[in-house]
Design a protein around this nucleic acid. Sequence first.
DNA 1: ACATAACCGGACCGTCGCAGTCCTGATTAG
DNA 2: CTAATCAGGACTGCGACGGTCCGGTTATGT
Lengths: 155, 155
Amino acid sequence: MLRLSKLTDYAVVVLVRLDAGLELQTSPGIAAAIGVPEPTVAKVLKSLSAGGLVTSLRGARGGYRLARALEDIPVGEVIAAMDGPIALAACVDGSATECESLALCPVRGRWDPVNDAIQRALSAISLADMREAAIPAVFRVPHTAELGRSDASRQ
Amino acid sequence: MLRLSKLTDYAVVVLVRLDAGLELQTSPGIAAAIGVPEPTVAKVLKSLSAGGLVTSLRGARGGYRLARALEDIPVGEVIAAMDGPIALAACVDGSATECESLALCPVRGRWDPVNDAIQRALSAISLADMREAAIPAVFRVPHTAELGRSDASRQ
DNA sequence: ACATAACCGGACCGTCGCAGTCCTGATTAG
DNA sequence: CTAATCAGGACTGCGACGGTCCGGTTATGT
Ligand code: FES
Ligand code: FES
């Protein structure tokens, strides 16, 4: 599937929201704005902060701010901040993992070109490109009301 | 991490192995050649067959054969055959999943360009490109001897 | 015709990473 | 000093993935 984690998905939404004109936004505020549970948004913000994509101000009246403009944030960097470095195979080059049995590993560095191609593709697209896509009428989400417990259908 | 499944990794090895000059190779034979358990190799072969990347001949003296030359098999097709269609987000366009609550989904189709870029990158690289990478001295792997229980170090 | 070899299509289960929540500090405004 | 906010973990439930196995089918060869 080559799916990326859902947290990364939220990260993009959060970052786009951070570019909404305001200078400083709090975690609960963002959560209310995009309709995602606050703890989850907080987690995303932390990872983003650790990745250097947003800057944080602690203490009362603190909050988060974009570290760079959306145009300067490639989507690959967001993925790296959330899901760790991009590595298709177990061992590409950032061989932080194991693989002592190199001799009998038939895929020794074989995925490197593929990995590199993807990384290049992800670096060519910025968050600004994704922002253009669309931002539907989501910003008027009720932040206090219970969103209806949308357990809708169990599949 | 954007990691692909280990089965896909094996698939590439198997496919490269299938291009080893022989006309027809059996599942146990391939397993012995690349040093991977037979049931796992069989599973990979089945997925590959279902994906139309290899053709199979049943019955005694049956086996597998490449459906197309390695040059004509983009790596993206292998990934699609093993891990299903490439879809970064939950909903790209093959919205086989759910997402009835479109109204409050802030990522509505936002990942499409990224997804497309990756797909293009994966289509540009063929298995022949990966075969060039290297095939170390793996083909002489002992298929009967126990490989030594390499539990080595627990890190 | 029979036995054999190989593929086919599942079911099955253990493991592991992910999604989501929560709690205890550290920091700063007022 | 108190309140608000971020920081950094620990914790748990769940679902996908990795790997194995089994009965069934097809074809070869004697
Ligand atoms: S998995 Fe690391 S070298 Fe093979
Ligand atoms: S997850 Fe499918 S539309 Fe949002």
